[in-house]
Amino acid sequence: MSLTFTLDGKTIPFEDGQTIIQAAGKAGVFIPHLCYHPEFKPHGSCKLCTVKVNGRHTASCTMRAMPGMVVESDTEEINAERRALTQMLFVEGNHFCPSCEKSGNCQLQATAYHLGMMSPHYDHFFPNRPVDASHPEVLLDFNRCILCSLCVRASRDVDGKNVFALSGRGIKTHLIVNARSGQLGDTDFTLADKAAQVCPVGVILRKRQGFAVPIGERKYDKAPIAETVTEGK
């Protein structure tokens, strides 16, 4: 007998050990997320994927699916909370979509569109975060970091290099580079690293390639995020 739970009234099959977001993705149901990536262990930090399970809030990327669970995701209440979280991410960093080369390919931007975010709502922090252009092939623009830690996990778990880490606590948490100088140019990071491929926003960028893809042909020009991000895609 197959295992199932319900997600917004729809029956979702799952295999033992799968999380809610994994099972939903496999069934073609989109749950907004930023720090979750199907190839990596869940981090549970961005909270965008929060759902209600039997009436209680929980991160769907860390909660294992159980038979008979009643999960709510695409509701006005939960989407309002997700929208507020997204707005906070926008104001904590410097996310200037109009001149950002990741526009159209950015998961944060696409999520904001998906959630109907029409304004930042909160006061901007305008943090002072210079770029790290020391690497010959890769630019780091910390202004756009949302602390998803995907680069940390990729560099540690796949590349075996530990190039990135999150440092500090609470609101002072920030991305650092594991080099005495703190500069990416002084690490063994390369464009072939998995960590160079996973940034959902515009922090880790291949140099001299910005805006090479015309408007209309970028990832989220072709289809909104709800239609592009499911398990394994």
């Binding site: 109009p98 001149s99 623009d141 001299r208 390639q209 910005g210």
Partner: peptide, 14 residues
């Protein structure tokens, strides 16, 4: 100043 050069044509048009 301090921004990557390839960003400039898109930024300054604003």
């Amino acid at each position: 100043q301090g921004r990557p050069y390839w960003e400039v044509p898109v930024m300054v048009q604003r």
